[in-house]
Design a protein around this nucleic acid. Sequence first.
DNA 1: ATAACAACCTACCGGACGGTCGGTAACATG
DNA 2: CATGTTACCGACCGTCCGGTAGGTTGTTAT
Lengths: 212, 212
Amino acid sequence: MKAQKKSAPSNERLAEIYRAAAQIILRKGYDATSVNDIANALGMTKAGLYHYINGKKELLFDIMNFGLDELDEEVLTPAGSIEDTAARLRFIIASHARLVTRGQGAITILVDEMTALAPAQSRKITRRKRAYFDSLRDTLNELRAEGKLCDVDVTAAAFSLLGMINWLSRWHRQGGALTEEQAAEQIVKIALHGLLRAETSAPRRGLRVVKS
Amino acid sequence: MKAQKKSAPSNERLAEIYRAAAQIILRKGYDATSVNDIANALGMTKAGLYHYINGKKELLFDIMNFGLDELDEEVLTPAGSIEDTAARLRFIIASHARLVTRGQGAITILVDEMTALAPAQSRKITRRKRAYFDSLRDTLNELRAEGKLCDVDVTAAAFSLLGMINWLSRWHRQGGALTEEQAAEQIVKIALHGLLRAETSAPRRGLRVVKS
DNA sequence: ATAACAACCTACCGGACGGTCGGTAACATG
DNA sequence: CATGTTACCGACCGTCCGGTAGGTTGTTAT
């Protein structure tokens, strides 16, 4: 009748478990990944793994929180000390992008497997994600107040940024044509300046806007 | 020993089934959706539904192809007859975005549930997706040849576009602050011109470029 | 009338999966 | 050497799910 939590055994091993689990879940999806799969990847049996975890859902929940911790530490906190707003936005995009390409898993899982959580867990994760989203949007609002933002909806802009960044995990491969740094740089460029060349100097053969 | 395919019964009902299944799968995920869930949503039993489908995976495969058909018909084919390259790009982005926000499901499932397919099916879908991606990239290359594209990697640009567009399904809600049209328009704006104000005509109170 | 078929149903099967139980071997502590 | 604790394992359980077998009902074709 003890409601005790089993007490965290060896924080070191636990991190290994999270990392291994994240990688497999990322590749096969949460539902398609059995607890056995994760255990075997760690050279264990299922019962052995259950020594460390309290259930499959709770494992997922922990991994997600781990990912959000990374996001806070490597993106939001450092960004907080950047005064210049445009530079701060640039940093957020680039460092978040790097986290997606470099880290294997935890953050991307955040994005894909929300439905697998229990309602209470889902609410907590959603709240943390919301906090991140809000500070991104705040930066955009600040930019607007300074007159540096284009005429776009800040919410749509913030989501579009996240879309570009999170999508990275689906196409960027290590050892591909673009390094992690280059990929992050490309995202920054596209997000801040768009794809089309600004038609400032010497209108080249008269571009027309075609509607419909 | 008949290898016969059971022959498609009533093309009408089949479309209803695809649509209902797509909605549920979109909400709960493929693995978490049981065949029973889909059957019940259609007012049937599982065995009843199996009169129409040949298996859960094949149903998913069919839905994905249905989504790709939509994409071809409503985006790629009309786009093919637009001469002006920039206008074509604009059209592709906007119409694809509208398809994501308006249609409920088939296209988004394409994106999320690839791992659930059998290898042979997965290859076929990947090939079709690849074809779509290539024509998007072709448009960008054409734009580059015309000197209208910024200095960005075309592959990264194409993927970033898809990221923004596909992400729409995660945040845009019917009846929300932005209509489908407005959301699509925002995506187009951000993708083509970026977030930061171009510092061309009449520097409004002295905008500076901030580096680093 | 009856044959034929589509469109379902109830009942069931085999297997996989999450999770548990009762161990055991290794090692540390006193 | 006794005791406790950590880190596992083999065997097992209940449940749920994809899929099937075989029947029933309603409609159409001849």
